[in-house]
Design a protein around this nucleic acid. Structure first.
Lengths: 236, 236
DNA sequence: TTCGTAGATTAACACTGTTAGGTTAACGCT
DNA sequence: AGCGTTAACCTAACAGTGTTAATCTACGAA
């Protein structure tokens, strides 16, 4: 169906049309992912012909990228919000960040899917993301916690944080925490986590909460007596 | 281009055609993901018309599912192979499993992408995966390690977390390890991990190796009291 | 008045997955 | 031998996709 001709007095000016396109694209993207977004559908929803979009965007990929950029901003403020309700330097703040990460992903699945679709997308997209799309928040929270002494310094050997208090690279711990939360929610979203009942833990959030003691204290047996934990061998 | 008519004597029998279709689909899928697989291209590669495929498969989704199933099997044996070179019950076996997971994902990116694309795919696909597509391997390795005393039993973790009873199954630790490895490689594949330099750790594999002490011993700062003095053997 | 241009249009191209309907060839049965 | 059935495959077509080319229209400036 061709778009109904727009009378001049209701013809939208360019920035409004662009915004309307972005909004329509966002809805379609959130509803059905990249495949669910079609130029013609966007156009129809805006009340404009499909090719008009090409006046504002270079193509579908560009349109998607722009929406993703907006989504990252929303994602960032969502995380920030969740973080600020816990004291600076606390482990609670770090773990709340993780929980918010999960919650956002679960509540905006199609959105999240697009954000982190395992595609070799333009690195430019990520580069334009303001402040790393939440990663800087995590990094900050981890840094604060290290400084507050609630999280150990990754740069040192286990326990050698006695004299040395300078956190060299909280990036490592941040990346580690990011991986865990992201992996969990990713597996959950593709249905893979159903393979593991995990003793009847029902929701992904609960599963994540069950991870926390493991993350905090590690998984190796710390024997009450004195038992040599077996060393990791080196392999190819 | 229409397919050249097949003379009777060179007309392939059904199972061979089906296998050829699967093979062509696998190649296209590995090369360009789901979008890179087109029925017409598959057909042309096999030397048959596009619609002939519908005699063996219900449609594109079904074809993809079948390839994914095969891929999971290959994935499983890849993991098994990597695992078996380490003693049963050792932490080394567990961590080798993780490394193999990463390696497979990095070496077969498009493949891996399809396996774990964040799509709400038919749960049936996962259900048909023999023995859980590697998860049972991880579970077994973790169970053995717990039994051998090298990995602590999750049930022994301190109390309950926020009212949630912590499952005592090795499933929890397995799921946790799976999440971490999967999250890392997933973030790497979509380019997100480039945001974190992590102290100059170059490759994903090295990054994973840096995780291992964290996974083993946790991230919370422990009182300076007890720690193994003879550590610090492994360097990436 | 004329020109340039922003904004939008229609028509078309080359794809896509999928369906409908038809054409063989081979097999089993009477 | 003749009949019916079915597996295997075909062509043609449909509805949809992203994208390009060429065109039209209104508006502001010279």
């Amino acid at each position: 169906m061709t778009a109904v001709p727009i009378r001049d007095d209701q013809r939208q000016s360019s920035p409004q049309v662009e915004a309307a396109i972005l909004e329509a694209a966002r809805d379609l993207l959130a509803a059905g992912g990249v495949d669910g977004l079609s130029m013609r559908q966007v156009a129809e929803q805006v009340g404009v012909s499909a090719t008009a979009i090409y006046h504002y965007f270079e193509g579908k990929q560009d349109l998607v990228n722009r929406v993703v950029l907006q989504a990252f901003e929303r994602f960032g403020s969502y995380l920030q919000n969740a973080m600020e309700s816990h004291p600076e330097g606390s482990v609670a703040r770090v773990s709340a960040l993780g929980e918010a990460y999960l919650r956002f992903a679960l509540e905006n699945q199609a959105y999240f899917r697009v954000l982190f679709s395992i595609q070799p997308k333009d690195p430019a997209v990520f580069e334009e993301v303001p402040e790393g799309g939440g990663f800087h928040l995590l990094r900050k929270a981890v840094s604060d916690a290290i400084e507050a002494g609630t999280i150990r310094n990754a740069s040192g050997s286990p326990g050698t944080c006695e004299g040395v208090t300078i956190p060299k690279h909280p990036d490592l711990i941040s990346m580690y925490l990011w991986s865990t939360a992201h992996g969990l929610v990713t597996l959950a979203l593709c249905g893979a986590s159903d393979r593991c009942e995990c003793g009847g833990v029902p929701s992904v959030i609960d599963l994540y909460r069950s991870f926390i003691p493991l993350i905090a204290e590690g998984i190796t047996a710390r024997p009450v007596g004195r038992e040599e934990p077996e060393k990791r061998g080196e392999q190819t």
